[in-house]
Design a binder for these strands. Structure first.
Lengths: 187, 187
DNA sequence: TTGCTCATGTAACACGTTACATGATTGT
DNA sequence: ACAATCATGTAACGTGTTACATGAGCAA
């Protein structure tokens, strides 16, 4: 239900192709919402049919032609409506495969569980490397030459900062949690 | 893909009906994996077709007859196979509507965003009440009369404890995060 | 008398994943 | 020589959500 609004929200900054949208998705909203290309194309088709976005073709000789999508005024209205109405529920569906494994851990040898936890830890530490080392910095994101045209403002930066902050905090927490679990499994 | 294993894992403790499965899901795996009744029935049908579970009917006079599902040896094998193979990726798909809102927060009035954050906070605090106040205690869960027959051991308790711990830690983190965001929006 | 619990499902729809197809350009 | 990037999609499948249908018993 929200992929729609993710797309509208990005198009609200600047018109772009489905392909571009996917790349922006991966770089920006990705911590929050994932989408595959085919999903995006399908959704764009549906949005166009409903008049929330419009498109035109930009021809290219060397590469496949581009189909550039823009948000319509209808689309802006729909986006703003969604954004401003406060949701009654804040819990989003959770489907965490690793946690399922942990839950059923007793059926497995302790050392095997431990090994899985250790791989999990590695994974989180790799993520930390990326998250903590200035790889994700709001000004960097906003002022990068590729994103310059996207019209992200400093005010956007504040909110993107909130998202990044949460990602960092969560990641640190997961590392701590995993370490404590491993320690408890250790003796 | 994992709903299947969630069901098999619970049936691995004791045979039960789809309806019971749903209730157990809600009480146990719910922090990790959500499933609706119709999903569970459909999945049980598929599992039975593939020989991973079997069922028999227990007739009742006052209430609708029960269809009780048990895990087969095939099912146990499949479950153990899944459980023991270490996943290469630990990131599960994230679709967090509230975070999407935050990401696009700049399009909204600051006070409106703040209001949404405050509702979010309330929500998390309500969850904290439940999580922190001994409502979720492993021994309580395992030794409750209703769960007695489910064959959860103390070893299960350890792992369920890990899950609960993470839920608590995450919730505390979210409260802290939301408070910091609200503070930053405050001035 | 209204709604919850028990207990089964079906059907339609929405959304997500994976695989396939096409084809030039650019970098290693 | 090989892979990645750019750029479009379609098709099939798998999973999740919502609504509907049935029907007794029990508690507020």
């Amino acid at each position: 239900m929200s992929l729609k609004f993710g797309i509208l929200g990005l198009l609200n900054h600047a018109p772009m192709t489905g392909y571009n949208l996917k790349k922006l998705f991966d770089k920006s909203v990705n911590n929050i919402w994932t989408a595959s290309l085919s999903q995006i194309y399908r959704e764009l088709g549906a949005l166009e049919k409903n008049g929330l976005v419009s498109s035109y073709i930009e021809e290219q000789d060397d590469r496949p032609d581009k189909k550039i999508y823009s948000i319509s005024s209808e689309g802006k209205k729909a986006f703003m409506k969604w954004l401003s109405e406060c949701p009654e529920t804040f819990v989003s569906p959770k489907r965490d495969e690793f946690m399922l494994r942990v839950f059923f851990g007793a059926s497995l040898e302790k050392n095997e569980v431990k090994r899985q936890f250790e791989k999990f830890l590695e994974d989180r530490k790799a993520a930390a490397e990326f998250l903590e080392k200035d790889e994700i910095l709001i000004p960097k994101f906003i002022k990068s030459p590729e994103n310059e045209k996207l019209g992200f403002t400093m005010e956007d930066g504040r909110y993107i900062g909130f998202v990044i902050k949460r990602a960092k905090m969560s990641n640190r927490l997961l590392i701590q949690w995993a370490e404590e679990c491993i320690k408890e499994l250790g003796e």
